[in-house]
């Protein structure tokens, strides 16, 4: 039965991908391309591009995309549920342990040393995205700099620090501005 197969395949993706995002990619490829042949390798790489370009976790995006192509909306829902089911169980248990033993001095000490590590991880994720904006997929060099992207980043950062606006509006404005400015420059070059 196709629904059960979809559920079990994405259950494994959800269960074995630790660290999120890119860690899930090879697992999805194994289930979707190699084992079940639901997508060709070309379709799979399209899927990854789309998953990166649209909101939401890659695993959930893939589950929806594959599910809907194999078995319609019901397939999309089944696959997505399979993908988040392990999280629901395991994270609930961890949350229970966290709130029960939070007061213990050992756990306090462990948690307080996790905090700087988490900040470092977030900083690194941000820097990777910035690198992608400024240098694209090229190696880091002065020729490859995307000045418009860099300028937009700097402006957005300063506006955020100074005026504390809604972050979603900042993100959307950056998208619109980038599109408009590039279009205007293209047009100017043509004339």
């Amino acid at each position: 039965m196709i629904y059960l197969k979809l559920f079990l395949s994405f259950l494994q993706v959800g269960l074995f991908s630790i660290g999120g995002g890119y860690a899930a990619m090879p697992l999805i490829q194994y289930q979707v391309v190699d084992k079940n042949g639901w997508l060709s390798m070309g379709e799979f790489s399209d899927l990854i591009t789309i998953a990166e370009m649209t909101p939401g976790p890659i695993a959930v995006n893939s589950a929806t995309f594959v599910g809907i192509r194999i078995a319609g909306i019901a397939g999309a829902l089944t696959a997505t549920f399979g993908c988040i089911f392990p999280s629901l169980i395991i994270v609930s248990i961890l949350a229970f342990i966290y709130y029960k033993y939070k007061g213990l001095s050992v756990l306090q000490s462990v948690l307080s040393s996790l905090r700087p590590a988490v900040v470092a991880l977030i900083a690194s994720a941000g820097l990777s995205i910035l690198q992608l904006v400024v240098f694209g997929d090229e190696k880091i060099s002065a020729d490859a700099v995307n000045w418009l992207g860099a300028l937009l980043f700097l402006t957005a950062f300063l506006v955020l620090r100074k005026f504390k606006p809604n972050p979603v509006i900042v993100m959307l404005s950056c998208g619109v501005l980038y599109l408009l400015i590039t279009a205007v420059i293209d047009y100017a070059v043509k004339i």
Partner: peptide
């Protein structure tokens, strides 16, 4: 969708915004 140039441009600009939001929180 994947090959549309305008979609790609808007997404590139949004990446710059995302990076700025992350750095703000990191600060």
């Amino acid at each position: 969708f994947a090959s549309n140039r305008y979609v790609a441009l808007a997404l590139k600009g949004m990446q710059a915004g995302v990076a700025a939001v992350i750095f703000d929180v990191v600060c």
